[in-house]
Simulated scan of single mutants.
Amino acid sequence: MVFATEQKSFGFKKEGSRGVAEAAPDKFLAVGADANIDYTQTPIPDEKVRGSKARFPSAPGPKAAAGTIPDIDVEAGTIGDLLLGCLGGVATTQPDAGGAPSVFQHVFTRSDSVQLPSYTMFLARGLHTKKYPLGTFKKLSFAGAVDGKATVSADVVAKKEEDAAGFTPSFGAPKPLMFFKTDFRIDGISDLNVRSWSLDIDNNVEGLRTLSLSQDPRDIIAKGKFIIEGGFEIYFETDAQRQKFLANQAAALEIILTGENIEAGFDNQLKLALPGVRYTAFPLGNLDDLLGAAVTYAVEQDLGLGKDIEATLINAVGSL
């Protein structure tokens, strides 16, 4: 018997003890059909000279678990776990605990810790169910088109692969954050000429390998700088931002995605604030026969605010 892609499902659970696999997932994501985590082993070849062209057997090499969970709809109820996993820092408050007790605000910032939050990730493929302890969200790639949902793809890294019990995922009604409720602001002003946008957040985690009596890495750590970059397409009405590119002056970007109402005065919302953007390309080009630019940018630290990225999420989820 063969197995259909539709039988695939993805879930995860934050680890109570770092690197100790959880028994079952408690959260689930609807993902693209190509979602996968590969567990690989790289043989160490025998390259010695023995007076013959025969290739002698290789030796067992290091193992690694990594993959991509693509095409996830950005929803206020689920994106918080991915932001926490990738950025590492969060502060949760209630904006109006008395008047709106079901509303929570989560502010995510970049963590300088070597160890970022770890999750056991589960992937059922029909053929079998596997789990991947010490799973880390390495990179989040956001995208927003002019006529669709905001989406995110997650690159993940884990310690190893283990057998897992089958699970039944649970999903509520889809509540994607949409193009017609997306506010793209440049230097604090809504720009109605932006056609699409993207944002990549990469924490550069990798396996820590030591002589730990195992082919698997001992830990998954973030020892390098974050790489935060992106782009947007914009029609020209003014070249003020292009002049900032030519002068290497910083700009501030805000991407605000609003969803359904939670309680009076509060909507589901995700705001991605990038106060220290430096444009890396701002060409005079052609967008659908109109003068426009496919802009790219890199995010740097804003020395006045002391931050490079801040994501503010308002939803009805009390804890992450």
Score class of each variant (00 low, 15 high):
137 F>G: 06
302 D>I: 11
292 G>S: 05
158 A>D: 00
184 F>D: 03
117 P>G: 08
307 K>S: 12
10 F>A: 05
85 G>T: 00
236 F>Y: 14
82 L>H: 02
318 G>R: 10
82 L>S: 00
159 K>M: 09
107 V>K: 04
65 A>K: 05
127 L>P: 09
221 I>K: 12
211 L>S: 12
177 L>I: 01
253 L>C: 04
230 G>R: 00
179 F>V: 07
293 A>V: 05
205 V>N: 02
319 S>T: 15
30 A>W: 03
227 I>Y: 04
249 Q>C: 09
216 D>T: 13
39 Y>C: 13
24 A>L: 11
226 F>W: 01
310 E>M: 12
48 K>R: 12
29 L>M: 02
4 A>E: 14
175 K>W: 07
2 V>Q: 13
109 T>C: 04
61 G>E: 01
147 D>P: 09
181 K>P: 03
49 V>S: 13
236 F>W: 07
113 S>W: 01
122 F>G: 04
167 F>Y: 15
304 G>L: 07
97 A>F: 10
268 N>T: 12
6 E>Q: 15
148 G>C: 06
29 L>Y: 15
296 T>F: 01
173 A>K: 13
128 H>P: 06
229 E>T: 12
170 S>R: 08
317 V>I: 15
269 Q>H: 06
239 D>H: 08
150 A>C: 12
4 A>G: 08
292 G>F: 06
74 V>H: 07
191 D>C: 03
292 G>V: 02
233 E>W: 01
198 S>P: 09
317 V>Q: 11
312 T>K: 08
284 L>F: 11
227 I>Q: 12
212 S>C: 10
111 S>A: 09
88 G>T: 07
246 L>Q: 11
139 K>C: 03
19 G>T: 07
126 G>Q: 04
79 I>G: 02
156 V>M: 06
232 F>T: 07
186 I>C: 10
159 K>H: 10
113 S>L: 11
29 L>G: 04
279 Y>I: 09
273 A>D: 13
64 A>I: 10
104 F>P: 07
48 K>H: 14
201 I>K: 00
10 F>S: 00
315 N>W: 03
96 D>A: 09
24 A>C: 08
189 I>S: 08
81 D>L: 00
12 F>N: 00
194 V>P: 04
244 K>D: 14
147 D>V: 11
62 P>N: 14
290 L>Y: 13
14 K>L: 12
194 V>A: 04
299 V>G: 06
87 L>H: 02
15 E>F: 02
109 T>K: 14
119 Y>M: 05
139 K>H: 01
31 V>G: 02
129 T>P: 03
19 G>A: 04
145 A>P: 14
220 I>V: 12
52 S>A: 11
28 F>W: 04
64 A>N: 13
81 D>E: 09
11 G>T: 07
76 A>R: 02
8 K>H: 10
162 E>M: 14
299 V>F: 11
179 F>C: 05
154 A>E: 01
303 L>K: 15
96 D>H: 00
242 R>W: 10
